[in-house]
Design a protein around this nucleic acid. Structure first.
Length: 740
DNA sequence: GAGCACTGC
């Protein structure tokens, strides 16, 4: 196809982009070496232009150009724009692939996709033989999947002997990032060249405040302060919209309430048409908000009225709002951190990093020069805020990641080339869990079961339960449950007390339909009731269920069903039989994947986990088992939430006999022994030595009951009580500030 | 006796 014949009306526009001047040199740089780092801030045009340049320069002769994005919307919208610029139909030469939506064809030469999709492709084709160029975009965001891809690609090149032989020509790799830590990226890829492209944004003036200092890391006074600053901006600054960054839904609603109170006006929730307060349009924005309400954010305000969006971090990367000129930054974010010592995820409010603060400020300079009002002091910035956000790979449970790596032939998961290494105990914990699920054996080798498990986009425990169900021919029970547990929370709990009462009542009724004693069964019932309903969205509204979440659960269930069917046709599945009732069948399948999440009643309403940490937990009030008088001695649970107490959520009662044979597995393997196995494949000789040592350690006279008694005596983990103490302190301060 | 940020397969 000739260049002149395809001159696009957008071409002149593309030539205006900062990247255009570097076109020849960029193509040259990609030709000359295997790796290239390209840096450039927003507006440089790197995401849309570079793939086109490479396409034009003939890089598609031997394969596709693949470009990864951390988010679905980005992959789709960028592909749309590039297809338009190249004047072709989306899905032909230019396409995209995200979960549930594959818009590519055999003609596709330039393919945008999410990083998770490319990772899945590597599983099927470790040499990425279809690609001539792989471009990893937004690497500075350090998403889990991008980090894994970086390591895998580095490994692919580091040992030529290991390199897949399916390729005829060497792969070209381009890593694109904002101008952060570029030296680190270059060093990671054998000191490759770095290409810097200037961005095209406007200057943002940042100002520090006086309200939050180093002593206020635990306080919540920032909501009031943020409101004050926003009102100041409104009364004293030139025209331009305001974006306020807070940490969560309740805070945002409180801030919006305060904004109205201060301006003596009506409640924004009741009169959507009249949200203006003395020329200020107040709009909350957070992820779980209904989509039609979210859409309002993007509409320009009426003439003469200033828009003030009060948002979570969703506005930092995922959504871009036009016309923002002022930022009010609280300096905090809500972050999910995995704690390997307790095997729990803890959601906590922490100060943002300096790089994140700059990212937030940058949101004010998209269309013109802006201002960023930070409510914290310069001292807070210096003493409390880290340079960079801890990458996801260092604060997340690695069970699924380690299984993926193992299936890709990475035996030594500890010495895998990570850009930033996760703590060794995170990896050991993952190995231990995989061993407990029978996904790997004692040598750390993937079992047949593990090979099946890696195919499912689920947490390995849930996959384990699903596969058990499949072998008992009752997958119909588990498929919906697995789907429901892997989407966002489906139960709506509104802020208004009256609505809250109504929602709780509806949810209680839904639980009662299945006997009111099993939260997993409730999920199954909600799924089925909604699916068989004539008007599912209306059914959801009536029952205070998130229609959007349920819709995605339907898609997930279909996908899981397809994967299962494919595997059943391809491989031999173990077949077992079971006689017992349906409720027992469901619970027994769940036990196979959740025996790491078993708790036993200790004293009164307190339960004690059996996972080796012996944490004291309570059943969450949202559970149908909360306050049940019935004999409840053993339960399994889906997750843990640390707030005023350590709560377990999505719970169901089980019989001790069902997990009796599984529980010893929790203490069978010493993680430090596993670590030596993790490092490399051991020889038979070493293995025999190790097995002998293990056998000596396993004393047959120690019964499960005794192990459990020992476990119950262990005190609660300090980090959990720390998190709890922090929570209580915040709550108290909040109440005090309310009382004032 | 109730406090779930955001992504992704």
């Amino acid at each position: 196809m000739s260049k002149s014949a395809r001159r696009s009306p957008k071409e002149n526009e593309s030539k205006q982009l900062p990247i255009y001047q570097h076109k020849t040199k960029l193509i040259q740089a990609v030709r000359e070496s295997s790796f290239l780092v390209v840096t450039g801030e927003t507006g440089s045009g790197k995401t849309t232009q570079l793939p086109q340049y490479l396409h034009e320069a003939g890089f598609c002769k031997d394969g596709k150009i693949g470009i990864t994005q951390p988010r679905r919307v980005a992959a789709i919208t960028v592909a749309q724009r590039v297809a338009q610029e190249m004047q072709c139909t989306l899905g032909r030469e230019v396409g995209y692939q995200v979960r549930f939506d594959d818009c590519t064809s055999s003609d596709t030469m330039v393919k945008y996709m999410t990083d998770g999709c490319l990772l899945r492709e590597i599983l099927a084709d470790p040499g990425l033989s279809q690609y001539s160029v792989v471009i990893l975009d937004e690497v500075h965001e350090r998403s889990l999947n991008t980090d894994i891809l970086l390591g895998l690609i580095k490994k692919m090149f580091s040992n030529p002997a290991n390199a897949p032989k399916s390729r005829s020509i060497p792969l070209k790799v381009v890593v694109m990032s904002a101008t952060l830590e570029t030296d680190k990226l270059s060093a990671f890829f054998s000191n490759c060249a770095v290409f810097a492209i200037p961005g095209r944004t406007f200057p943002v003036t940042c100002m520090f405040g006086s309200a939050v200092g180093p002593k206020d890391v635990e306080s919540t006074g920032y909501v009031k302060e943020v409101v004050k600053v926003a009102l100041d901006v409104h009364t004293s600054e030139m025209a331009g919209d305001i974006l306020v960054f807070l940490t969560g839904q309740s805070e945002i609603e409180r801030a919006c309430d305060l904004l109205y109170e201060k301006a003596e006006c009506i409640d924004y929730r009741y009169d959507v048409q009249d949200q203006t307060v003395e020329g200020l349009l107040i709009l909350p924005l957070y992820g779980s908000m209904p989509t039609d309400q979210q859409r309002q954010i993007f509409q320009p305000p009426p003439p003469g009225i200033r828009k003030c969006v009060v948002a979570t971090n969703i506005a930092a990367t995922s959504l871009t709002i036009n016309g923002i000129k002022y930022i009010v930054d609280s300096g905090f974010v809500k972050q999910l951190n995995h704690n390997s010592r307790v095997g729990m995820d803890i959601l906590e409010v922490v100060p943002i990093s300096k790089s994140e603060a700059q990212q937030r400020a940058g949101r004010a300079g998209r269309t013109s020069a802006g201002k960023c009002f930070r409510i914290y002091t310069k001292e807070f910035w210096e003493k409390c805020m880290p340079e960079y956000t801890v990458p996801e790979i260092q604060r997340t449970s690695l069970t699924a990641v380690v299984l993926t790596l193992k299936c890709l032939g990475v035996h030594d998961v500890i010495r895998f080339p990570y850009l930033d290494c996760p703590e060794e105990r995170f990896i050991l914990e993952a190995l231990k869990q995989l061993y407990q699920f029978d996904a790997i054996d004692r040598r750390g080798k993937v079992t047949q079961l593990g090979e099946l498990m890696v195919e499912f986009p689920l947490h390995p425990g849930l996959t384990r339960a699903l596969l058990k169900a499949a072998s008992l021919d009752c997958q119909e029970l588990l498929l919906p449950v697995a789907a429901m547990l892997s989407v966002e929370n489906i139960f709506i709990r509104p802020g208004q007390p009256e609505e809250q009462k109504e929602a709780d009542e509806k949810h209680r009724k839904l639980a009662a339909k299945t006997g009111g004693m099993n939260d997993f069964a409730t999920l199954l019932s909600v799924f089925q009731s909604c699916k068989s309903s004539d008007r599912p969205s209306v059914w959801c509204k009536e029952n205070w269920i998130h229609w959007r979440a349920l819709k995605s659960a339907f898609s997930v269930e279909t996908q899981l069903r397809e994967i299962l069917l494919r595997l059943q046709q391809k491989r031999d599945f173990p077949v077992e039989t079971f006689d017992g009732n349906r409720s027992e069948l469901l619970r027994r399948c769940l036990c196979t994947g959740y025996f790491t999440n078993v708790a036993r009643r200790s004293v009164g309403k307190v339960f004690c986990t059996m996972d080796g940490h012996g944490s004291m937990v309570h059943i969450h009030p949202s559970s149908s088992l909360f306050d049940q008088e019935a004999e409840l001695n053993w339960v399994i649970f889906h997750d843990v939430l640390v707030t005023s107490r350590v709560y377990i959520r999505t719970v169901c009662p089980i019989r001790y006999e069902w997990v009796k044979d599984l529980l010893p597995k929790l203490h069978e393997v010493d993680v430090y022994e596993l670590s030596s196995v993790a490092r490399e494949e051991v020889t038979d000789e070493e293995m025999i030595k190790w097995e002998t040592r293990e056998a000596a350690k396993r004393q047959p006279e120690v019964s499960t009951e005794e192990v459990m008694k020992k476990l119950e005596k262990r005190s609660n983990e300090t980090t959990v009580s720390d998190a709890r103490a922090r929570y209580l302190q915040r709550k108290q301060q909040r109440q005090q500030s309310k009382a004032l």
